[in-house]
Design a protein around this nucleic acid. Structure first.
Lengths: 252, 252
DNA sequence: AGTGCTTATCGTCAGGCAGACGACTATGAT
DNA sequence: ATCATAGTCGTCTGCCTGACGATAAGCACT
């Protein structure tokens, strides 16, 4: 069968981003306000079309930089100590997910430390960090007792999948450190787990677990007192990327 | 910005399938021989274009049925006791992955019990089950001391990702039962783990683990002796889909 | 300076689970 | 009858976790 362009239907391919961070003890996602139909005025995940000469990961990294200014952390650059974690999440291709045309969206998951105010192409009022609980509740009320419309398209599903991926992945990997600044304390790391999982963890057992896992944390020698209380040792993420045995998420 | 078809480049979207099964104590994948360029005559993963009105999962299920005759197991049909497991794996979209045009492929992972001879549109010589080791070794020799060409396109990467997904997912889920017939013994299930992981497991500890996990296995009352030796109890997969604590994969 | 509050860090103890492995059972093959 | 094969039940030891007591070292008061 020779190459026949009419043998397959054309698709538009986009990348959508679930960008997560931890702010004020809550897991938050980046949302942008749609300026055009469909779903005009509603909140959505950031994203855009994949360009003709671009890999999917490149497109996701480009969109992430455009929306947040974040560079993606590249393991091949050892000196580069900052930058977000970015990974492919899943692909969504329901024929009716975009009323305009057939769009297949390759969703990506990005994890970032707490950032300054977001920018969406320079317009701050059209982008915000919102607690994922608030974005996922359908037709409820947000923090300001302001009615919240569901996310545009199937973005609520994408966000839920991204949050679930993050929740499960910090169990068995060092991914939680992606939410932390380059140097952090055990308590700050514990608060990341608590925010992402929405549970309280025993500080003593947590401390034993993370400091007792070889290669997970590397002490930098410094201490800090930015949390109040007794000064805490500062750490950097160690080379170990897998956590074995995993951190156990408490039952329910 | 109004809707402008020229604002985004057109893509072809395909689904590719990593269909895994366990045959003769080895993890095998379904491969089909390409009948046309590019990569004519080389082995590849089964797959095809997504149709205009089709969801991605529907397209994958359709391709799976066309290649193997397998129906996908639908949890909403309780009486249906056979059928493959099918899940989305990842999406591959390098601009040069197909020399003809820009193709984004949404790979899916399917797990099936040992099947009769494969069929590829009725032509058996163009489809086969091959041990994944054989398909993944680059330019080596297969079981018949016959030189093996690498898989077409980026299918070696896709297969490797699918195998890795299967290997890790049987740790913490009941997915290994998808490789078994509807009724199976503890030993048969253990041989699945051994084939997928490529290790030997202690039969006594394995038996204790799987029979001691509530809801994982349900005895059917019958016994069988198809493996030789003492007759073994027959089980069906229980309702538990998550295995907690997980089955531990031995080190290295 | 002292008191109280906060957070960090170290220790102890009991229970659960996994790895190693012995022992016994029930079939088919010779 | 004996052996080979596979299945099933126990035992023991070590590791890890959850629960929680105790101490350390800062800050904000008075």
């Amino acid at each position: 069968m020779p190459y026949d362009p009419s043998a397959f239907p054309p698709f538009a391919v986009t990348v959508d981003l679930v960008v997560l961070t931890v702010r004020r003890h809550a897991l938050c996602a980046l949302a942008v306000r749609r300026g055009e139909p469909p779903f005009q005025g509603r909140w959505a995940l950031p994203g855009g079309f994949v360009r003709a000469d671009e890999d999917l990961a490149q497109a996701a990294a480009r969109e992430l930089a455009e929306e947040t200014g974040l560079r993606v952390h590249d393991p091949s650059v050892p000196a580069q100590d900052h930058g977000a974690h970015l990974e492919q999440l899943a692909t969504y291709g329901d024929p009716k997910r975009d009323p305009r045309m057939r769009v297949v969206s390759v969703a990506h998951l990005a994890l970032a430390p707490d950032l300054p105010a977001p920018r969406a192409g320079g317009d701050a009022s059209n982008a915000r960090w919102a607690p994922v609980e608030e974005l996922l509740q359908q037709g409820g009320y947000g923090r300001d007792t302001e009615p919240v419309a569901p996310l545009a398209f199937d973005h609520a599903q994408i966000l839920a999948d991204g949050v679930e991926r993050a929740r499960s992945k910090i169990e068995y990997s060092s991914l939680a450190t992606a939410f932390c600044p380059p140097e952090f304390t055990v308590g700050e790391l514990r608060r990341v787990y608590e925010a992402v999982w929405g549970v309280a963890l025993d500080p003593r057992n947590f401390h034993r677990k993370v400091t007792g896992t070889p290669g997970f944390l590397v002490p930098t020698g410094g201490t800090t007192t930015r949390q109040g209380g007794r000064p805490a040792q500062l750490f950097r993420a160690g080379g170990a990327t897998l956590l074995n045995p995993p951190m156990l998420r408490p039952e329910v």
